[in-house]
């Protein structure tokens, strides 16, 4: 497993900036990642760390101006998505790479029925009649376990609950047979009770249809149950990556550690305190060249302050990478963090 032939998407050194009146905001500052076929990968980070922008960039969904993809490549099934022209990338969007957005309440057009929206998307990519498209869409609603799909097809989005709408978005991905589903905070806007359902559904769809899934989230707890590998992003860069198991067992970047400490765990002691990461995420506008986590880092030392941003490098042999000058695994035992 893991051979190149199995690779679905490989992003190299992607850089996306927003040019606003105050200057350049480096939202995505040279990130590289990959996803294999039938794999589930999570991209984790705080709001504004560039995780959504990086995903929108690969299908050229960045609004320009003010956004601009400055460089890098996104090799998807042998071609560079960033080099496709507007009509070529349109054939990829929805058909091969399906997006599921954070806000199910606003992600569907309020004045068009669910059935019409789904059929239209299907007819954009497949040469089928209206009736066939309608049937495919109904089947897709059935696949995402929406009860009474024939009736629901004629509903408007405002007649559905948030969880239901998110299922419709997933149905869209199913109906178009996408190879890769990118879910951008798919459960953040939902009730806690529906979150698990939607996530379970998404994962079962991925397994059933043999697609791949990139989950973008700030919720590490959500990710650990489903993801094969994790990328942790901070201030437009990847600061740690590795298999889910490895990162959970051995978090090595201070930021990852901070994230884990600030999320409650079911198996922890009742009186164990949650430790928030102090300070605020840095502004990405005209940021200094030092490590972006430096002002909030409890392990910061002279080497961090004197050098430019640390590059990703392998630790512990395998596929575990971090961008940090300090060896946290060793320091963890000394500090009571």
């Amino acid at each position: 497993m893991g051979g190149y032939s199995n690779r679905l998407l490989e992003v190299n050194n992607l850089r996306t900036s927003f040019f606003i009146t105050e200057g350049e905001v480096k939202a995505v500052d040279g990130i590289s990642y990959y996803i294999d076929k039938e794999e589930i990968v999570a991209i984790v980070g705080e709001s504004g760390c560039g995780k959504s922008v990086s995903q929108m960039s690969i299908i050229q969904l960045i609004q320009s101006p003010p956004g601009k993809i400055l460089g890098g490549e996104a090799i998807f099934e042998g071609r560079d998505l960033l080099k496709l022209n507007s009509s070529e990338i349109r054939r990829v969007r929805g058909a091969e790479i399906a997006f599921i957005f954070q806000e199910p309440m606003t992600a569907l057009n309020p004045v068009i029925t669910v059935g019409k929206q789904l059929s239209k998307d299907i007819r954009t990519h497949k040469k089928v009649s209206r009736k066939e498209a309608w049937n495919i869409a109904t089947e897709a609603l059935k696949a995402v376990k929406i009860p009474d799909p024939e009736k629901r097809m004629k509903n408007y989005p405002f007649e559905m609950s948030g969880g239901m709408r998110q299922r419709v978005m997933i149905a869209n991905a199913v109906a178009c047979n996408a190879n890769l589903i990118i879910a951008d905070e798919p459960t953040t806007a939902l009730d806690v009770t529906t979150q698990a359902q939607v996530m379970e559904l998404l994962v079962s769809i991925v397994k059933e249809y043999k697609t791949s899934l990139i989950v973008v989230t700030h919720n590490l707890g959500l990710v650990t149950r489903y993801a094969d590998r994790i990328y942790v992003m901070y201030a437009g860069r990847i600061v740690e990556s590795g298999t889910c198991k490895e990162i959970m067992k051995n978090p090595s970047h201070p930021y990852t550690l901070g994230l884990l400490k600030s999320v409650p765990k079911l198996d922890s002691d009742v009186d164990e305190k949650l430790i928030p990461i102090t300070g605020a995420p840095p502004t990405l506008l005209n940021a200094p060249d030092t490590c972006a986590f430096l002002p909030r880092c409890p392990y910061a030392s002279e080497i961090c302050r004197c050098n430019s941003k640390p590059e990703l490098h392998k630790i512990n042999g395998g596929n575990h990478l971090i961008a940090c000058y300090r060896d946290i695994a060793r320091l963890k035992n000394e500090h009571d963090y």
């Binding site: 009509s87 349109r90 058909a95 992600a107 057009n109 004045v111």
Partner: peptide, 26 residues
Amino acid sequence: NQDYIRTARANGLSEVSILFTEALKN
């Protein structure tokens, strides 16, 4: 600027179709 326009783009609809069928009606 609405989310559903972004959804329409992410689903590969053409700009003309987005303008006159998705956006104008709203």
